[in-house]
């Protein structure tokens, strides 16, 4: 059962294209297929296959049909992954400082004019009398091991992309939206709904939470209308991950 499509909300830029794949796009291999149903705007989660028409959602406007390309999705997510600059800078500065200090001290001592910035006589006597199973040694080792673990985790864990990747279907065309701009667009969509005075959208976790204010005393169907408008706008923008919409209606 399908819901008949209605007019797209913002028509200033013409009807949304939905049939021809973009030139330069890799032709879908046997493992991929286009978005199954032009009417079910939100679409199934990437990687799952549903029969056309099996989805019954509140989407009404046909979004652009983008051939689902896993290579493109992966490329987009990878392009916007955090680059770990701050931990890298901290580690690099410490490395440089430690290396320079030790090198200066050792080389100057070897050349006969020791700098004596590091109190190595004191350090040597401490190290000669402190055992491996001393609690201070163990504590220091524990701290070092934890720091090491933190660095390893920072290196291995991909992290959430800093821009919201957009589905393009072409691994060579990568588009990412700034999250603030994304929520601004959704807020605008919510405020276009007649009866809504102002709205605010926050992306919390994987959902889009809309808080809308309306002066109407009996807002019948208003929440649904806001949800429809925002969901349609999300579909029009086409992020990789789907953001289910939750609406909270407040009076003035």
């Amino acid at each position: 059962m399908t819901i008949p499509p209605s007019n797209p909300p913002s028509g200033s830029w013409g009807a949304e294209d939905d049939t021809v794949p973009i030139p330069g796009t890799q032709s879908p291999t046997s493992g991929e297929r286009p978005v199954p149903d032009p009417v079910s705007g939100a679409g199934p989660a990437p990687g799952t296959f549903t029969a056309p028409g099996a989805e019954v959602t509140e989407e009404t406007s046909p979004p652009a049909r983008v051939p689902r390309n896993h290579a493109a999705d992966r490329a987009a997510v990878r392009a916007f992954r955090p680059r770990r600059v701050v931990p890298a800078v901290i580690t690099a500065v410490l490395m440089t400082a430690l290396g320079a200090l030790v090198a200066a001290e050792v080389i100057s001592a070897l050349l006969g004019r020791p700098l004596r910035w590091i109190p190595y006589d004191r350090m040597l006597s401490w190290a000669s009398t402190t055992r491996w199973d001393d609690s201070r040694v163990l504590f220091g080792a524990g701290v070092a091991a934890l720091l090491g673990l933190l660095l390893v985790l920072l290196a291995l864990i991909p992290g959430r992309p800093r821009l919201i990747p957009v589905r393009t279907g072409d691994p060579e065309l990568i588009i990412g939206m700034q999250p603030r701009g994304f929520t601004r667009a959704l807020t605008h969509a919510a405020e276009q709904v007649p009866g809504i005075d102002r709205a605010r959208v926050k992306l919390r976790g994987k959902t889009a939470e809309v808080t809308a204010h309306s002066p109407l005393r009996e807002p019948a169907g208003l929440a649904e209308a806001v949800q429809r408008a925002v969901t349609t706008r999300i579909a029009a923008l086409g992020p990789l991950k789907d953001y289910p919409v939750r609406v909270r209606l407040r009076g003035e």
């Binding site: 890298a88 690099a92 070092a144 090491g148 673990l149 660095l151 290196a155 291995l156």
Partner: peptide
Amino acid sequence: NRIGLLIMGLLLLLL
């Protein structure tokens, strides 16, 4: 950066 962090992290872990 990730490679560098991995190497230094493993060194610290080892020590």
